[in-house]
Design a protein around this nucleic acid. Structure first.
Lengths: 187, 187
DNA sequence: TATGACATGTAATCTGTTACATGATTAG
DNA sequence: CTAATCATGTAACAGATTACATGTCATA
């Protein structure tokens, strides 16, 4: 009934295809060669995922015949696929997103500018900033409640807190970048 | 043939059980109420995982009958389970571990002190420090190579770099903590 | 008496991992 | 000629998610 929900890998593929139509092989190379190694570069993950997206009419593949080389199938977003990508990118940042380490949020942010524009990037950052504050508060309270725990467990939590603090600092920096840019545009 | 390999959730359960014998319900509460929400608190994940660990003779469950309350099964590590946990904790930190965000390394570190002792905690930190340096260098080089990419994509990578820098700082701080403690012990 | 916390599970389904399989083209 | 790279897939399996199912006990 309801549209089947798309896993993170699916959105990663949609985002990359929006930036540049590619074959399954191209996409695998992106995953294995860039810092997107979080996602699987195995054919057993990517080709089935592309087939699923095509079945949902979010992408369309066309076979390309280049002289000499073996045929390759290049995938492009359909209008429906672009709409799906945009709605994923523009979702508000939730506490859940943060708990998972914020990797998916970063991916949404990375794609936001090419897919929608700087306004969307700024919106994600603001939403992230809002979500981070109560989350950090919660983690700090947890650390307070861990006086009795082994030192290594406390240090591990401290590490998590620091990494969210660093994320918070980055968020402020990035917001600044976009707000300056916005002023330049409207002046 | 070879011993079936244990997923991250399995090691999380072993670590928690080493710290305190618990029922499946107790463990679910830990996952849902603490900062270990990265792991599933759903019964469909935890109970099968516990059964697998028991089948591998890494844990042993004993039914507890408390007056009035419904019976609950409390699991404890077997000697084999403790050995498995220790060997997981003492593995060297790899580049792969870092790519996944270092969550599993942190878990290993958190359990290291109660399961083995401060020496093991320090060993993980040293190994982490060693692994971080080339990884950071690699990420910085990637950022240099991204001059043409959209600003949001560059910022997203910058965020990743900052978070590894923050992890590096924490590592130095934690090493310091343990080295001081070591001196206190031997003086 | 009804709600919520305690407590344990199963079944369907989806996805990812690992390994295998195929075949063309290019560089040494 | 042979190895590496390009290029695409399938099949078996393991594990997670989601939803369902069951039942006790305390408390409001």
């Amino acid at each position: 009934m309801s549209p089947p929900k798309i896993p993170a890998l699916g959105y990663a593929l949609l985002g990359l295809l929006q930036m540049k139509p590619s074959s399954g092989y191209d996409l695998r190379k992106v995953f294995s060669s860039t810092s997107m190694k979080t996602y699987s570069d195995s054919p057993g993950a990517i080709y089935p995922a592309l087939n699923r997206l095509q079945k949902q009419a979010l992408i369309r593949g066309t076979v390309e015949q280049r002289s000499g080389l073996r045929q390759r199938q290049v995938f492009r977003l359909t209008p429906k696929g672009l709409a799906e990508l945009k709605q994923w990118i523009t979702r508000a940042v939730t506490r859940e997103d943060l708990v998972r380490g914020g990797q998916e949020v970063m991916l949404r942010f990375a794609f936001s500018e090419p897919a929608i524009g700087p306004a969307a990037s700024l919106a994600i950052l603001k939403s992230l900033e809002t979500a981070l504050q109560p989350h950090l508060k919660h983690l700090r309270e947890q650390l307070q409640a861990m006086k009795a725990a082994p030192a290594s467990a406390r240090l591990a939590l401290d590490c998590g807190i620091r990494s969210y603090e660093s994320l918070f600092d980055w968020t402020r920096y990035a917001i600044n970048t976009y707000e300056k840019e916005g002023k330049r545009g409207t002046s």
